[in-house]
């Protein structure tokens, strides 16, 4: 059904008239011009479209936009503050935890969700939590290292 929705995306409230059954992914990309979340499979299996909804990782491709009205939606574009990269982004850069980069924004958002819930995850916990994310280029080992580095950065410890 087409209706007025208030979306709070990266801290900014936006009123949009939308079909409320559309995917959050398509609204972010096609209506709001936020391309960080990617289409990979369209059914929630690859994680490339991951964003945070009230701080919790959600697959935006299988999330109907009407269900997240009024909730705090964070995309990768909302992570930087004062022109500085978020520690998770910084850690992914330093560990070179990507190749083609198509999965990276979703992976970073998944990692942000994990670190909010568990600031000091073990390698095994990282693997379990991010199990729903695919990296076809195969940078998994460096992704685990990046999340561990991000954890240290967020603690204020030396990476």
């Amino acid at each position: 059904m087409r209706r007025q929705l208030e979306l709070v995306v990266n801290g900014e409230a936006r009123r949009l008239e939308l079909e409320d059954q559309r995917s959050l992914l398509s609204v972010l990309r096609d209506d709001l011009g936020l391309y960080g979340a990617k289409y990979g499979c369209g059914e929630g299996h690859c994680g490339a479209c991951t964003v945070l909804v009230d701080g919790v990782p959600r697959r935006s491709c299988t999330t109907q936009v009407g269900t997240v009205a009024g909730k705090e939606i964070t995309t990768v574009e909302g992570l930087e503050h004062d022109g500085k990269l978020h520690p998770v982004q910084q850690a992914f850069l330093e560990e070179e935890a990507f190749q083609c980069g198509y999965c990276t924004c979703g992976m970073i958002m998944g990692a942000c969700g994990l670190l909010r819930r568990n600031p000091r995850p073990t390698a095994a916990q990282i693997r379990t939590f991010l199990d729903g994310h695919l990296c076809r280029c195969g940078t998994y080992q460096r992704i685990v290292a990046a999340v561990q580095r991000a954890s240290r950065l967020l603690q204020g410890a030396q990476p």
Binding site: Y35, G36, K38, V76, L85, F92, L93, F98, T104, C105
Partner: peptide, 21 residues
Amino acid sequence: TSRLDGVAKSTGTAKYTYDVN
């Protein structure tokens, strides 16, 4: 050497074909 496109890829500003509208 860290890749030059690392920031673009980790911030969502890297534009893939799928991102071209």
